[in-house]
Amino acid sequence: MSEERTMNLTLKVWRQKNENEKGKFVTIQANGISSDMSFLEMLDVVNEDLTRKGEDPIYFDHDCREGICGMCSLHINGRPHGPKQGTTTCQLHMRSFHDGQTIVIEPWRAAAFPVIKDLAVDRTAFERIQQAGGYVSVNTGGVPDGNAIPIPKPSADEAFESATCIGCGACVAACKNASAMLFVSAKISQYALLPQGQAERYQRAQAMVEQMDREGFGACTVTKACEAECPVGIKLTNIARMNREYFNAKFFKEKTAHS
């Protein structure tokens, strides 16, 4: 374990009262920060100080703080979830920073993710995309035995890899085009890879892609920034699969998307 260090940092934080008002960067000094703290704990400490001074604490989204709920965000020094690859902001520790460093903290930037306060954005666009078709239409009960359909382990594993997406939006934040394709393709892939997803495979791909476009996310230019910044390592192959599913549905299948 590296020795615990104490450091003083300069934070440049985006402050914005609400969706409608203009925001600006505010410089805040964070002193006596331990290298053992997580990034969000550092912000907690800053917020406690602000509160004691009677100033409005910085609003940021977070919940589980173990890297799985996907609620935390933050664009830190130019990168979603900060400088470490394969981590969410809540799992980023201050040992990745050094004394005297200036840290720029911004919200995710995308037309489809409007800032609602300070560093928190509205990611309900992701919800609507999933509602458009990210499911298998089965009712509770009346389903076959879990072992009735054997699923080859490689397919199951690959579907699982796609299914681990935590829906944080780092892919959108990292992409220079604010494209949501990594997210959408991971969802489409999970079902495309499993026998359970076959019945609605092509309707799903169309419905989800079209909802994605309606939300105003950008197009993919294959910079691969999304893949590099994804905290759970969702692969770019998913996007290729989505393209395949979508073109296949559009050009070769008869059924169109259920509206």
Partner: peptide, 8 residues
């Protein structure tokens, strides 16, 4: 049936 990718 919902497509939960359990270990196999």
């Amino acid at each position: 049936a919902q497509g939960v990718p359990f270990a196999r």
